[in-house]
Design a binder for these strands. Sequence first.
DNA 1: CAGTATCCTACGTGATACTG
DNA 2: CAGTATCACGTAGGATACTG
Lengths: 149, 149
Amino acid sequence: MKYKSFAHMNCSIAQTLEIIGERWTLLILRDAFRGVRRFEDFLQTGMSRNVLTERLKNLVDQEIMDKQPIDGKSSEYLLTKKGLQLQPVLLSITHWGDKHMANPKGIRTIFVEKKTGKPIAPMSAYSNDGRALKPNEIAIKAGPGSTTS
Amino acid sequence: MKYKSFAHMNCSIAQTLEIIGERWTLLILRDAFRGVRRFEDFLQTGMSRNVLTERLKNLVDQEIMDKQPIDGKSSEYLLTKKGLQLQPVLLSITHWGDKHMANPKGIRTIFVEKKTGKPIAPMSAYSNDGRALKPNEIAIKAGPGSTTS
DNA sequence: CAGTATCCTACGTGATACTG
DNA sequence: CAGTATCACGTAGGATACTG
């Protein structure tokens, strides 16, 4: 019995997890957002070579990262536009962890707007006119793609 | 060789993944946000009983969900406040999946503000004065908790 | 209905050696 | 430096039977 795939589920969360939900993958993406580009540098996070190879291959296949040759022997891995759009996912996870598993010495990573140097707003759902919404202020409606038949 | 734990890493993402990064866990949370409360209903997502049991136990241990007895034999699982605060994570993943793995028939799930019935704004980072920020407009700074020593 | 308990096995992981 | 290849191992996952 193989592991069940999430890919067939008609659900954005399930299908997304099928791509980025594997062990180590989100840590690789975290590193990429921090500027890591090279194979040996990604390795520092702690996974073994074969795992990194396989994860990077998947990310490239999914067009989340792009592999660019540098000089014939080396390559760099860069986030594509599709990959960059995962930033809210990483930011949301980071904020939750900051809140619930804080380092006693204080916050570990601060996200600031480059232009102003000011910290960004906490990740949250917002109304279309910019009010932060609490979880219980949001309802879920089925859209046209909600059925498979 | 056991699987390496992420828990010791001084990183909010790694520590959060240690809790909610296991297979099936985010799908259980997705169901919970949609109103699922009962063991047998969570099962419908497709995992087997022993896995669901173990995942729910972890979520309760981490105070992400709360197990409440109903009538001596049945129980319900409800998201705690800590669990509800994972909503931005789920929303971000959903939005990304909606964009990059769309169902050809249209969007599957629409999140609306209860009060107005209007769709919420797309998940994004925002500046502290409410402007949506693109990934490359954000910089990362080390905070006081960034070092372990 | 809500679990608990077993059993089996494929797969993911980790380590390491090796290559260009 | 950037992988590829191989191997051994544990365990996560799945199926299912059983209990209160």
